[in-house]
Each structure stands twice: as C-alpha cells, then as structure tokens.
Amino acid sequence: MFVLVNLKAYPCDPVEVAEAARDVADASGVRIAVAPQAAHLDRVAATGVETWAQHVAPVAHGSHTGHTLAEAVADAGAEGTLLNHSEHRLKLADIDGALDAADRAGLETVVCANNPDQVGAAAALGPDAVAVEPPELIGGDVSVSTADPGIVEGAVAAASAVDPDVDVYCGAGVSTGEDLAAAADLGAEGVLLASGVAKADDPRAALEDLVSGV
C-alpha cells in the first residue's frame, strides 16, 4: 500500500511530519510520501522522505507568473505530484497538459476524481494512478471505504476497464489502520489523507496507527 500525506495549507510543521513519515516508513516497510506546500518542498525532501508536490501547472518554461512549474518542483526534490484535487480542480485539457508537464519532469502522477465515472475519464489520460475522493467526505471523520465502499469498488472497476496498469487509491476521511485495511480489501492500492496526520497532536503516532492496518 502507498500512503500519501497531503499537508494542504494546514499550520503544521512540514519537517516534523516529514521526519515522522520517513521513520515510520523505514520501520514498517510501507511506502509513505508527504506533499507539502511548494515553498516547503526542498525542506521536506531534505529529510529523506518521499516528497510530492500538491500540484503542477500545464505549462513549460516561459511567461507563466504564479504557475507551479513541474521542473521546479522536481528540482526542489519532488518525486511525484497530485493533480485535480477537489480543492484545485482542473479542466480536462489542463489535466492532460499537467500530465505531460509531469512526465517531462520525471514526476509520478496521481489524478484525483470525485466518482467512478471521473476515475474512468482520468485513467484514459494515462496517469500512474487515480484517486477517488468524494468531496463531501474530505476532512471528515468517516472514511470513504466505510461510508460508501461501493465508490471504491466502482473506481477500481472503472480504472481497470480503461487501463489495468493505472493504480487506484482512495481518500477522504482516511485516518486509521482500519481505514487502510478496508481500502485494501476493496481493491485500492493506496490511500490519500491529510487532516488525520497534518492536524494530529502526534503525527508520528497517527502514522504508526495508520500503517498498523497493513
């Protein structure tokens, strides 16, 4: 299982979370990555944890003030990037362009989607993975794998029908080892989470509990 911790713009210490994720990954053998704000990418990458960007723009080098350049996040130490998170939606053409930018920079990609239909459309664009995250469950206390397991199963089926090589992750409300185990049972190969770690009083303990489900 792959665990991707999105720090969003929460007021947490990104280095503290990164060090905890690195240590828990080393101790458990579970692949754990951290996606901080772009300004913190180099600090997080310096801890040795697998580091991801929260977004890259569908642009190349040039006159693109305010955009997040894929090559820049790669230079800062990012190994992958989220795309089309429900809090940063993209048009289909822009998802396609951002995937091209990520590929150009050698970044692994996860495209987020709201439901199985969107998962199928995203999988057709050829990302490394898609993640199903119902927006109404994001940031809540109930995981998608518990609240609506059919969405996860449907996402797995939708991606497989389009491209069996595209992995499927799930997110929204994931925070415990039980959530992770439930996601795996439904066919997901990874999870996305944010507040369960970024807003935890003890991020290390939260991560240790999470991987206990593997």
Rank of each mutant, 00 (worst) to 15 (best):
D148E: 10
V132H: 10
D148W: 07
D202M: 10
L192C: 10
A206R: 01
E19D: 13
A198V: 06
M1L: 10
A70P: 15
H88W: 15
D165F: 13
L210Y: 08
P14N: 03
E16S: 03
D163T: 05
C170M: 07
A38Y: 08
D26V: 13
A200E: 14
V132L: 14
V49P: 00
C112Y: 01
Y169P: 04
N114R: 10
G106Y: 00
D185H: 12
A123K: 01
S212I: 07
R104K: 04
D94Q: 12
F2G: 05
V191K: 07
E16A: 12
V166G: 08
A182L: 03
A147I: 06
V144N: 05
A46M: 06
D26M: 08
R104H: 04
G154M: 11
L83N: 07
A70R: 13
M1A: 08
V214P: 05
V166I: 13
S212A: 11
V197I: 15
V24I: 09
N115R: 02
N6G: 02
A159V: 06
D165E: 15
N114Q: 09
H61C: 06
G196D: 02
D42N: 15
D117G: 00
L193Q: 03
R43G: 14
A129T: 14
A188S: 03
R31V: 14
S175Q: 08
V44Q: 00
A93I: 14
L99R: 01
V174K: 01
D167H: 10
G29H: 05
A72P: 12
L210P: 00
L192A: 07
G106P: 00
A78I: 01
L92K: 05
V5K: 01
I151V: 15
S28F: 04
E136F: 11
G80P: 02
S160L: 13
S195I: 04
L82Q: 07
G140L: 11
E50C: 12
